[in-house]
Each structure stands twice: as C-alpha cells, then as structure tokens.
Design a protein around this nucleic acid. Structure first.
Lengths: 230, 230
DNA sequence: CGGAAACTTGAAACCTTTCAAGAGTCGTGG
DNA sequence: CCACGACTCTTGAAAGGTTTCAAGTTTCCG
C-alpha cells in the first residue's frame, strides 16, 4: 500500500497537524513521496534556491552552517518525522546545508506549490508560521543550553534525542546518536576528547550503555537530575 | 508635526519595508504611536498574551529568557528602529520578556489588527514571514558566534552594535552599549570580570575608548581583524 | 552627600582543550 | 573470508583560557 499523508505515522507531528481530513487530501496530491538518499548525500546546500519543505520519513540528517572562516558548525540533528526548510521560505534560498547521516527517505512539498495551497488552506498558512516560530523557540533553548558545563550539555543532548524519538513512536531508551563523537563535539561546542570522556563516565556510572553511535539509557532520572543542577 | 509611518526615519528598516505609499497609509491608521516607558519598565513578560508587534522608536530594550532554574538569559539587545514580537505571532503568547534599558518610546501594531491587515496587504504577510526568517538567521549567527574566544566575542559584540546603529542613521563610532558589564557577560556567556578585563585591554591597545556604557571605536579594522582570526 | 551598585584588577582554582599514543571499528579489495 | 588502511574512539598528561574569589575604586542616584 502506498504511504499517503492520511495514513502516514507522523501525521500528527508533520505539516498536516491541525488540518481536516479534506484538507489533508488536498495536500496529498501535491506532496512528493518516497525519495531516498544515502549516507553523505546532500538534501540541499547553503545558497541553493529553495526547492521546498522536506519531511524526513526515515533516517537522520544534520543541518550545518559554514561561517566566514569556512568552518562547519552543526546546527541541528533531524529525526524521522521532522521538517526542515522553514528558514528558506521567505528568502527563497537555503541559508544552511542538510546532509544525510545514513540511508534516508523523505517527502517534499515543492516550493512553487506552497503559496497556492496556503491560499486554499488558510490553516496551513498559520501552521507554517507556527513551525517557523517553533524553530525560533528551539534555537533559543539551544542558545541557553550551550552555556552549561560539559556533562550537562551531554546529558541534555541524550535526553533531547530520547524525548524526540519517543514522541515519534520510536524507542526513547535505545537509539542512535547519529553523529560521531567529533560531530557531537562540534554541535555542543566541546572537544572530541571531552565528549568521549564524559560519555564514558556516564557509562561507568551505570547511567547509559554505549555501542558505537548507539546508546541505551538506563537511568534517565539521573541524567535529568544532572541537567537540573544550578 | 506628528510622526507617521510615512515620515518616520526608520521606514526602510521597519515593517513598511517593501510596501507602496498607499499600503503604508493603510498601515498608519492602525499603528499606535508615541508610547513611552522608563528604565526597567517591562514591554511584555514571558507568558503574557500577544498584544502586538512592537517597533522601538528611541531607547534600547533587552530580550530575556528565564530557564528552568529561573536563571535569566539575555537573548538580544533591541535598538531604535528594530521590531520585536515575531516569535509570539503564531502562539499568541510571548515566550520571552522585554524590558526597557533606558527611557524608551515605541509604536505598536495591535495583535487583533494583524490578521485583517495582512489579508488586505499580502505583501505585509510575506514581510512578516521574512522577519521571522530573519530572526532565525540572526539566532544562528549568534549560536556560531558564542563559540569563539572571549576577545572575539567582545569585538563582535561591539562591531555588531556599531553596524546596527549605523544602519539606522546613528553614529557607528560612538554609542551606548546599553548593558552593564554583568549583562554583557550574561549575553556573551562570559564572567563579569572577563568582560571588564577584555574591554579594558581593547582600550589600552588604543582600539576603543570607554566611558561607562558608552564606547568610542577608534580602530574598527583592528576589531574586524581580531574577529576574523581562525 | 552618602550608600549602593557597578567596575577594575590581581591571584589562585578549575574546567576544558590540546597533544599524543594506542586500541578499536569499518569497509574494501585481494 | 581475512587483511589492510583509514578513520574513529579512548585515555593520560600538560597547557591554557576563564572563572571565581576578593578587595579596592569609581560611578550613579536618591
């Protein structure tokens, strides 16, 4: 059976959130489905013309930004069911790059269809604004979060992933971190060695179990407690 | 003479950016003008229902966020001609607080008028989305910026203020930093002592002159050069 | 004018980074 | 299927930048 917006498992997290059945059916006719990429493939690059909003169906992607010194900074990690491209909506060009971290499939709402469909479905328009606003809020939390000490940053990183996996119907206990230690360090502004050391310490304390990029959370309250410290 | 959107000096930076004369006149009828606040007064508090978009006409404001440990984090510094409130557009409530740093006057576009006027002036709607998108971009730059060493953060802080003042018709050479050393530290994630020390060092090197919150930039290229380092 | 708040400045402590070397893991090709 | 090479991860020791602590000075405001 073909997967449509109507029967897609991510419906409530994805763009159709808040739409009526009739409206979702309108959307379905426009959404392009079942595109597949492989590890390292690029979804879009900074400066590319805006092609459309992308919803990840499976796999993970990283969002990166190149600064003036052509240094790469990882801005976000995208999980299945999450949408990217809102920041390009208004300028018709991407301001950052997105790359698949493993085999990845996604749907797309083509750029040139967005304005017409928003006119037809006013709710969708408000939904777009809401998503853009959500991005602002998430980034703010990240800005505050990055000020904490190394162990709290890593605890928060794990808890955030766990929560997001869980919210999308995956296991929040055992999951892939998606990034290498070096990339985690880049994302959290820590040295590779600090990431490795701290994660290992969590493991020795019995809070988590590590297996390459995979992690299993044994003691979630302990991590939450660490994160909540002054 | 009454200041209207048509003759307001910030026209090109403010919301009317991109609107025709006729459209601006429509906007004028709705915008509330000449509100005045004093140092420490609150424009809005986190959780307040969305009252409207605010454009600062004179004075400065700080945008703050309270984390789970009820610690205040300064997210942004708002200068004359800048707009705030976009993040509340979609959820109809503010997610952060705004406070006047000195005597401040502002205009407001009331919340309940926004939807009607956007329907009447489609350009304005796109303008809203563009502003929201701009906020995302500014926050990203800030996230990357905060990873740099202390002296680069402070150089960047000064250059950013200088550029923004200049873009709005004020002096980019001599201006007020608006914040105390402690607040600058909060904003840039540095200890109060580090801010004081580093600014003093800039002054001793002859790059700037300090006078309380006021700063005069003598050697802008030196600051730019410092910021551009690896 | 006086008290509180803000700022400066030195010294020691601390956390994180850097450097470095060895172990482990992965994918590819023989 | 194993071997090889490249990349990633772990871990220790030393270095380094920032913070903390603390005390003195200046500035601001009532």
């Amino acid at each position: 059976m073909e997967v449509t917006c109507t029967n897609c498992g991510f419906g409530s997290a994805c763009l159709p959130r808040g739409l009526t059945q009739g409206e979702i059916e309108q959307l379905e006719h426009i959404v392009q489905r079942r595109k597949v990429l492989h590890k390292g493939d690029v979804l879009f690059r900074s400066g590319d013309p805006f092609r459309g909003l992308i919803a990840i169906k499976s796999g993970m992607a990283k969002l990166t930004y190149q600064d003036d010194q052509s240094q790469e900074h990882i801005l976000a990690l995208l999980l299945p069911g999450e949408i990217l491209g809102f920041d390009a909506l208004s300028h018709n060009a991407y301001h950052c790059s997105a790359q698949a971290l493993d085999t990845l499939s996604y749907c797309a709402l083509p750029a040139r269809q967005i304005s017409p469909i928003c006119t037809k479905i006013p709710t969708l328009f408000h939904e777009m604004l809401r998503h853009a606003s959500d991005v602002i809020g998430i980034q703010r939390k990240q800005m505050v979060f990055i000020k904490k000490p190394a162990d709290q940053r890593l605890a928060g990183f794990l808890l955030d992933l766990s929560r997001r996996y869980e919210a999308r119907g995956f296991s929040g206990e055992t999951f892939s971190m998606g990034l290498t230690r070096k990339e985690i360090g880049n994302y959290l502004d820590l040295a590779l060695a600090t990431v490795s050391r701290t994660l290992k310490r969590f493991e020795k304390t019995g809070w988590i179990e590590l297996q390459g990029k995979w992690v299993r959370i044994f003691d979630r309250p302990a991590l939450e407690c660490l994160l909540a410290e002054g």
